[in-house]
């Protein structure tokens, strides 16, 4: 197999045949490639593809149809007539964990429910993201008190959480803001810049 190009100028946009819609990404990749040392240059190509994929992922988040308590109603409200989550590409609620890539924890996580949630999370294919919606999923919220026996105090005790949305319950607008935050995070990819 031929040795991949080692010189930075060869990874420029003119080498990749993509449509005009990729131009802004390519410009960004261009800016990125300037910072990358010569010896790791071949990986920039994968970075480009990742960027594209992340954009696609961010703009078509498929949440799992999964409500736990009060917040689930606001989650439904976000998907219903007035707030219309479809505007952000996240309105396709999937009934099966196998088809979903974002889990919105909407409500209190009881100790009886916790193993089920973990199982659902494990069933979701990677890459996957988690949104903790409401006080209960952040730290137990109103149901947290000394010596409580019933609930798991926060979704992050079960799965890694990407975005926390405070509120009891958060308004649909807050959920949308949280989703946009998650989109930003996904688009930024693994390279945390700036």
């Amino acid at each position: 197999m031929e040795e991949p190009p080692r010189s930075p100028e060869l990874v420029g946009p003119e080498r990749v045949t993509l449509g005009p819609r990729a131009a802004p990404i390519l410009q960004r990749a261009d800016a990125v490639s300037d910072e990358i040392p010569v010896e790791v240059a071949p990986y920039v190509r994968f970075g480009l593809l990742d960027d594209l994929l992340n954009r696609a992922r961010a703009n078509s988040l498929w949440p799992l149809t999964f409500g736990l308590a009060c917040c689930a109603i606001e989650m439904m409200a976000a998907g219903a007539s007035r707030h219309d989550l479809d505007r952000f590409g996240a309105g396709v609620f999937r009934p099966s964990a196998r088809q979903a890539d974002v889990m919105i924890f909407a409500g209190t996580i009881s100790k009886k429910m916790a193993p089920v949630i973990r199982q659902l999370w494990d069933q979701m294919p990677s890459p996957k993201w988690a949104i903790a919606m409401g006080g209960c999923t952040i730290d137990g919220g109103p149901f947290k008190y000394q010596n409580q026996y019933a609930i798991v105090e926060g979704a992050d005790l079960l799965v890694p959480v990407d975005v926390y949305i405070p509120g009891c319950p958060p308004r649909p607008e807050a959920l949308i803001a949280g989703l946009l935050k998650l989109q930003e995070k996904i688009k930024a990819g693994r390279r945390f810049k700036g």
């Binding site: 409500g107 009881s110 149901f143 008190y145 409580q148």
Partner: peptide, 24 residues
């Protein structure tokens, strides 16, 4: 699966403090 111990909470706080629980 959604047991949140409202009744135990009621026995652990005064009458007014249970008020936010009621609508939940």
């Amino acid at each position: 699966y959604a047991h949140r111990a409202h009744e135990k909470m009621a026995e652990n706080r005064n009458y007014l403090m249970f008020l936010p629980n009621s609508s939940r």
